[in-house]
Design a binder for these strands. Structure first.
Lengths: 179, 179
DNA sequence: ACCTGAACACCGTTCAAGT
DNA sequence: ACCTGAACACCGTTCAAGT
């Protein structure tokens, strides 16, 4: 609050004339973040490609404002979180022909995946492990870890994210066929 | 630090004889959390059921220590995060016959989903939306939101989580068949 | 080797007093 | 209606001084 006050050329206490407290300020930032989400879905054919586009936009939001995105992920749910994300999803879903419970489960799966993926991404890459640090593991397992960390860090994130979406959509299509 | 000191019957500054700073303390807590993860996989037949069990354990960890789990999700990656989770996964995967890149992508998909799902779960349920709050939406969309929030909150979390795992595993099995 | 007092540079928030 | 000074009850951290 004090720093924000300084930035605005005002004392910290003045802020309380405009905002109830710091928490409200943080939630407001998240709200602004979500309002910024732009989903351009109109050109897309078919529910699958439209839904993909919603979650791609969501991930782009995390890249654009990583710190606020962490707030989004961590702070308790608010109405605005639901109000921004859910209609965008349901809108993209038109034509899929699911009942509501299935739609909501699909939403939970896709949003959980996207939140988790973007969060891991935003935190940065895994540090090179120190040799002594891994003493808990057997020698073979230790070797495996050393081999994997660079591959983990060197991955093409966009392709990797799409791969995860592919998995989930394969599951959803199968679900749809079963009725 | 001051509160922890009090809890230990000692002044806050004394802690700096044992720990470099607060950050290190938080990372240590995450490390203890991960060390606590118990995966009982030995009885399970087949890689799929074993891998499922790994991520179920992970989610159970979030329920047991929600605050530390949030730290896990938010703090930068450390060696110990990889060292605990990845070997457990790779171990469960034996017999699936994938190359490393595919294994790592499967790991990313499943861990992202589980982190995201557990995080949303841990934050608590969505508040009942206020009627005036949703003025941004059209009337029909507003009605849809009002209808959905109770369903969203009332869901059977265990079943919902498993449903998401189902989707991803369906995708992985398809991937496996294609080679 | 470990603990402490004093000190520094911070926080968020309240409230009476000002314009 | 909005801003401010003073004040309260906090933070994490350093460092010289103690045992």
């Amino acid at each position: 609050m004090r720093r924000l006050g300084r930035e605005l050329g005002v004392e910290a206490m003045s802020l309380y004339n405009h905002v109830p407290n710091k928490e409200a300020l943080l939630d407001g930032m998240v709200e602004v973040l979500l309002a910024e989400m732009e989903v351009s879905v109109d050109g897309k054919e078919g529910w699958e490609e439209r839904v993909r586009e919603v979650f791609r936009s969501f991930r782009r939001l995390a890249h654009a404002h990583p710190d606020v995105f962490v707030l989004f992920a961590v702070r308790p749910p608010t109405t605005s979180k639901v109000v921004w994300l859910l209609p965008a999803f349901l809108d993209a879903l038109r034509g899929a022909g699911w009942e509501m419970r299935t739609s909501l489960r699909a939403f939970r799966a896709l949003s959980s995946y996207t939140i988790g993926y973007a969060l891991v991404e935003v935190r940065g890459s895994v540090p090179e492990p120190a040799r002594d640090r891994t003493g808990i593991l057997g020698a073979a397992e230790e070797e495996r870890i050393f081999e994997m960390v660079p591959i983990l860090n060197g991955a093409d994130r966009d392709a990797e994210f799409e791969f995860g979406l592919d998995l989930i959509f394969t599951g959803l299509r199968a679900e749809l066929e079963r009725g």
